[in-house]
Amino acid sequence: MDFDPTAVWAAIIFFSVFMYVVLDGFDLGIGLLYPFVRGRRERDTMMNTVAPIWDGNETWLVLGGEGLLAAFPLAYSVILSGIYLPLIFMLIGLIFRGVAFEFRFKANDRERPIWDLAFICGSVTAAFFQGVSLGTLLQGIPVSGRSYAGGPLDWLAPFPLAAGCGVVAAYALLGATWLVMKTEGELQQRMIRLAKPLAWLLLAAIAGVSIWTPLAYHQVAERWFSFPNLLLLSPVPLLVAACTFILLRALERNPFRVPFVAALGLVLLSYVGMAISIWPHIIPPTVTIWEAAAPPASQRFTLVGALVVLPLILAYTGWSYYVFRGKVGADQGYH
């Protein structure tokens, strides 16, 4: 079998984006949950659970974006042209959120609510426009020749906006189950109570997308409902149901890691379902990964660096989570 650097690069970018969604998803989720918690000590505890690791989580977004530029320059230029405004809004949200991380702990009692608001608004904006960007990609990006053929507001449509709301629900659930794992006492109980409706909300979003996309796009319907694909892909919805059951059941007991792992499973299955729907297109519905790929020599050259950097990032990420494992209190962590 010939070595295919295009497929390897597609797998690297898929993995990098998934790692970003998971790791930055739960710390964005903490900002989404801030309005449900009023006490300063509880908010301090929530932020302390992610303060030592949040900036490292965003490394994966950089790796995925730069990998797309290096390996699929056509996709980079076309996709970014279609979602410039959502990406700008997302980056503005990430900037406000990052500044709030640093300044909130140094602010006095009069100024702290301003940084709390910046943390909330930045988290909501970043999460929502990540979902809008994803929804815009899934609904299809028009291409003429090798250029973007759509308008600047193509993302302002029902499906991308609904996808934005779905990602907000997913991140909020990740944040709630992360705090269930990392906190104790009243804060943990509050997150358990919030996680239950958020799980149902995410399941409703998954069901909505699963119904919407086959009805709107015949190629997606053919991918999922033709025979034998119907049988081969049936484990995906069955596993979604199983993860939801495990999550809700674990929340009723003495929860620790299981709810967070089950929530990760729901996000992973949603991500896999999206990939199945659009594969092998990197610019749906017309441009495949091979049509958008850089020359093989360029891909092989950049792949050497990626295969060196990727294990280092994985090692650093794993080590940081190991060092900051365990429960977190209001007086522990980042100052």
Rank of each mutant, 00 (worst) to 15 (best):
R38C: 00
V272H: 01
I276V: 15
A126N: 01
V143I: 05
G140Y: 04
N57V: 06
P158S: 10
V220D: 07
V308G: 01
L266R: 03
V323K: 12
R249L: 05
F260S: 03
R253K: 14
I12S: 04
Q189W: 04
N254L: 09
L91N: 01
G93W: 07
L138R: 01
L23W: 02
D109K: 05
Q332Y: 02
A207Y: 06
I95E: 02
G150N: 04
L303F: 05
V309I: 15
G318K: 04
P158W: 11
W54V: 11
G29M: 10
L303D: 08
L179M: 06
P52Q: 10
F256I: 00
T177S: 09
I95Y: 10
P311F: 12
L161I: 15
V99T: 11
R97Q: 13
P160M: 07
L174M: 07
A297F: 02
L230F: 13
G265W: 03
G98M: 13
L312D: 01
I278L: 15
P73I: 13
T177E: 08
L314G: 13
W54G: 07
A221T: 00
T125L: 15
A297D: 13
G329A: 06
H335Y: 14
H335T: 08
H281K: 15
P214H: 09
T244E: 12
L247A: 06
R40D: 15
W9R: 06
T244Y: 11
W60L: 12
S277H: 05
M181C: 00
A162W: 05
W224E: 14
P160K: 00
F26C: 08
R97N: 12
I276Q: 09
D44A: 15
K182R: 15
G131A: 12
W9N: 10
G64R: 02
G185V: 13
I30E: 08
P73F: 14
Q332T: 15
G82N: 06
D27A: 09
A330R: 02
Q130C: 05
L201F: 10
S133P: 00
A118M: 15
P142W: 11
V78N: 03
A107C: 06
K196L: 03
F96Y: 15
I95D: 02
G31A: 12
L138E: 04
G98F: 12
D27V: 10
P5W: 01
